[in-house]
């Protein structure tokens, strides 16, 4: 266990070493939130609510969705791909730890770092500039926290899956990019799921993506009834479990397939 904590700490140090990334990250997220705020304002116009979300809820939704993204988002799929492409994975395999477990911990280290030094100050800043309604009940905050943890797990699992495909494809930059667009679109980051056509919503119910962004954001904006919250959390939890299976299967095959490139 201690080694995993040490890895989280290491990632913290790395995030601090890349200061420019940190500052540009803040800038990019602020621009995104601002842009979506004005876009949604224009769409709402005089209307008080669309698809059951008020304009105020919508602004909150956008802000919290992006701040949550700072926590669950990571690039470990790309990291795995690079490590395989330049053969660095050999170094990882000579250490007494589980490679995927360590990658997850690195993602978590990154997430925790951004949560404290990015999301929280960012949220305060956004709450200051834009009209946002923060939840009043502590329970909502708690449920949001749990849901956010599940988002991290689901997103990381999907990243691991994408990353492992490098073992077979050797160059999967296109796949990684496609995955990113799919997640942004189907997770409810850009558009709440309830805004999609009914048939699309039906399809998305059977996909893990809405567990990444839509569920925690809806909890935060009080868009769910308490029964719906329970169902949504359960669904997230089930996806966390289900996704373990393909990862483990692929991993077993991948280890046999492994070719160390470049000598």
């Amino acid at each position: 266990m201690e080694k995993y904590l040490a890895m989280i700490r290491m990632r913290f140090l790395m995030m601090l070493a890349y200061r420019t990334d940190y500052y540009t990250g803040i800038l990019i997220y602020s621009i995104n939130i601002g842009a979506y705020y004005f876009l949604w304002n224009a769409i709402y116009g005089e209307k008080s609510s669309i698809e059951g979300l008020s304009s105020m809820q919508m602004t909150t939704y956008v802000a919290v969705a992006w701040m949550a993204r700072a926590f669950y988002f990571n690039n470990i799929d790309r990291e795995i791909a690079t490590e395989i492409k330049d053969g660095k994975v050999a170094i990882e395999m000579i250490r007494p730890y589980n490679y995927l477990g360590m990658k997850t911990m690195q993602g978590l280290g990154e997430g925790i770092f951004r949560f404290f030094f990015f999301s929280i100050p960012g949220m305060l800043l956004v709450a200051f500039i834009f009209p946002i309604e923060l939840p009043h009940e502590p329970a909502t905050w708690g449920l949001f926290g749990i849901s956010l943890l599940f988002s991290f797990v689901i997103n990381t699992q999907i990243n691991l899956l994408t990353g492992i495909t490098t073992f077979f494809l050797y160059n999967n930059a296109g796949l990684i990019r496609a995955k990113r667009v799919i997640i942004d679109l189907f997770s409810g980051l850009l558009l709440p799921i309830s805004f999609y056509p009914i048939w699309a919503q039906e399809v998305m119910k059977y996909l893990p993506f809405q567990g990444i962004s839509y569920v925690p954001s809806m909890i935060f904006t009080n868009g769910y009834s308490s029964g719906e919250i329970g169902m949504a959390l359960l669904q997230q939890f089930i996806w966390c479990i289900i996704l373990i299976i393909p990862i483990q299967l692929l991993w077993i095959v991948a280890k046999k397939q492994l070719i160390i490139q470049g000598g």
Partner: peptide
């Protein structure tokens, strides 16, 4: 031909992590 140390971080931090590992 490959490094097992972390590129952007002080050497002792790599040692510290490996010690835990």
């Amino acid at each position: 031909q490959r490094s097992q140390l972390w590129w952007d971080i002080a050497v002792q931090e790599s040692f510290r992590l490996l010690k835990k590992v």
